[in-house]
């Protein structure tokens, strides 16, 4: 019984660390979206008339760039709230 508890504690602790490590992936989309926003601002500065179209394109590109970050968020959420590893123990 004690061994089981220890195993569960290890799995839970490792899952929490894993969730934290997974969210490091947030770096990439952050940098990418920042670059997109920078060029968007530059483009609006050059052509203020086309700002609607530029904003729309920028947001669309940022949404696609965000995908990897969202995947890491989903992985972290699964590890925290719907942990599949803990079920393997029992």
């Amino acid at each position: 019984m004690d061994g089981m508890l220890l195993a569960k504690a290890i799995v839970l602790g490792a899952s929490a660390i894993g969730a934290g490590v997974a969210m490091i992936a947030g770096l990439g989309p952050g940098i990418g979206q920042g670059i997109a926003a920078a060029y968007g601002a530059q483009a609006v500065g050059r052509q203020p008339d086309a700002s609607d179209k530029i904003t729309q394109t920028m947001l669309l590109g940022q949404a696609v760039a965000e995908t990897t970050g969202i995947y890491s968020l989903v992985v972290a959420l699964i590890l925290l709230f719907a942990n599949p590893l803990i079920r393997l123990l029992s």
């Binding site: 949404a63 965000e66 995908t67 969202i70 995947y71 968020l73 989903v74 959420l77």
Partner: peptide
Amino acid sequence: SFRLFGNILG
């Protein structure tokens, strides 16, 4: 689907 789901749930 994951983009919308992740954003709103997050």
